[in-house]
Amino acid sequence: MSETIKKFLYVNRKAPYGTIYAQESLEVVLIGAAFDQDVSLAFLDDGVFQLTKGQDTKEIGLKNFSATYRALGDYEVTKLYVEKESLEERGLTLDDLQNIEYEDEDDDYAEKSSIRLISRAEMAEVMADQDVVLSF
């Protein structure tokens, strides 16, 4: 359908519930996934808080959309870049993040992690490699 596939990067730099940015970003990603582009997500600064496990929003009256990140694989969004320095600054490691996996159709539907831990310098490379960068 689309002749030219463009590289889209969604940059997430905000914690999940204090502002609407994180949830809006996720919604745009899900809608945008219909357009068959090469989509990546970047999580840096407070954006890494979006992926932590054990979120429970019952008592604040907001939807726990952290579960929705695990559906991204169904939408063929399988590249979630997480910045190592941002995790470390916040006292977090990969173990504090939820598992987000996708089924690799080209590898007998093997379950693979969508999360790719990269350094700040590598994040800068990822950003520089895009056609379109959308910030949230």
Partner: peptide, 14 residues
């Protein structure tokens, strides 16, 4: 499980 209703193509694939 995911707190969303899947898009139609995701539904059909599943």
């Amino acid at each position: 499980e995911y707190q969303i209703a899947p898009a139609v193509r995701v539904l059909i694939k599943s």
